[in-house]
Computed example of a mutant assay.
Amino acid sequence: MNELAGIADRLPLAWQIHPAPRPSTSEDLEDAVRDLTRHFTYLAYTVASRDRQAQRYPARYTPQLREGTAALARAATPTGRALAALGEAVTAAGHLHHLTHSPPDPGHADDLQHTLIALNGHVTQARTQLFTAARQLRADAHRLLTTQTPPASAALTTLAVTAAPSSPRGRSR
């Protein structure tokens, strides 16, 4: 979940994308696609391997594993949408590259502006989907952790704990 949010944070912001793109815009997209593909592959692999595990060792496939697998599977949808948006962003970045390295013709300025808007929209959509996936995974992890926490024993909950004074005035000399 933190990795997905980290990928989103590393994507260029709208004000960082210009008609004459800095080389790092395409490199940022390349890095994001590579990282996101790795994470998307992890999601698919984990779901498939846990399915095999459940079939081979049904007694070992606990409700926690089943719920964790379902949480990872749910994250695949926004992660896949983010990957698709990054694919569109790469296409727009390629068109922007073409426009900035071609002699201007009629409609060049409009095409350039349209391409910038499209590129920004795709990057923003990818960022939104990545944050959605990260938020969803975080909520699922929190829910799974709180439902798995064993209750404290009665002996531990009935003991009174006195706090030490926090200021020097309350301490004996």
Rank of each mutant, 00 (worst) to 15 (best):
residue 51 D to S: 07
residue 57 Y to R: 09
residue 15 W to T: 10
residue 100 T to Q: 15
residue 126 A to I: 00
residue 92 A to Q: 03
residue 88 E to C: 14
residue 135 R to P: 01
residue 112 L to A: 13
residue 109 A to M: 04
residue 82 A to N: 00
residue 73 A to E: 04
residue 25 T to Q: 03
residue 133 A to G: 01
residue 57 Y to F: 05
residue 26 S to D: 05
residue 33 V to N: 04
residue 96 L to N: 05
residue 77 T to C: 03
residue 136 Q to E: 15
residue 130 L to P: 03
residue 3 E to L: 01
residue 70 A to H: 02
residue 136 Q to M: 15
residue 54 A to M: 08
residue 71 A to I: 09
residue 18 H to W: 06
residue 147 T to L: 13
residue 102 S to P: 03
residue 86 L to K: 00
residue 161 V to Q: 13
residue 54 A to V: 07
residue 107 G to C: 11
residue 31 D to T: 07
residue 79 T to N: 02
residue 70 A to Q: 14
residue 122 H to A: 14
residue 127 R to E: 11
residue 54 A to C: 13
residue 48 A to N: 11
residue 45 Y to V: 12
residue 46 T to I: 07
residue 159 L to Y: 04
residue 158 T to V: 05
residue 88 E to Y: 11
residue 101 H to P: 01
residue 163 A to W: 11
residue 45 Y to N: 12
residue 63 P to D: 15
residue 37 T to R: 09
residue 111 D to L: 13
residue 40 F to A: 11
residue 46 T to A: 13
residue 119 L to A: 03
residue 47 V to A: 10
residue 13 L to T: 11
residue 149 T to P: 13
residue 57 Y to N: 05
residue 150 P to V: 06
residue 127 R to L: 03
residue 6 G to K: 00
residue 11 L to N: 00
residue 24 S to I: 11
residue 96 L to K: 00
residue 127 R to H: 12
residue 91 T to Q: 15
residue 140 D to N: 08
residue 116 L to H: 03
residue 133 A to V: 02
residue 113 Q to H: 14
residue 135 R to W: 03
residue 36 L to N: 02
residue 93 A to E: 01
residue 83 L to E: 01
residue 124 T to Y: 04
residue 61 Y to W: 08
residue 42 Y to N: 14
residue 63 P to L: 11
residue 13 L to K: 15
residue 170 G to F: 08
residue 149 T to G: 03
residue 122 H to K: 09
residue 15 W to P: 03
residue 131 F to E: 14
residue 145 L to R: 15
residue 130 L to N: 05
residue 25 T to D: 05
residue 105 D to K: 10
residue 120 N to M: 09
residue 79 T to E: 01
residue 80 G to T: 11
residue 9 D to P: 01
residue 92 A to T: 07
residue 166 S to P: 01
residue 143 R to S: 13
residue 134 A to R: 00
residue 41 T to V: 08
residue 164 A to R: 13
residue 41 T to L: 14
residue 58 P to I: 04
residue 151 P to N: 10
residue 100 T to M: 14
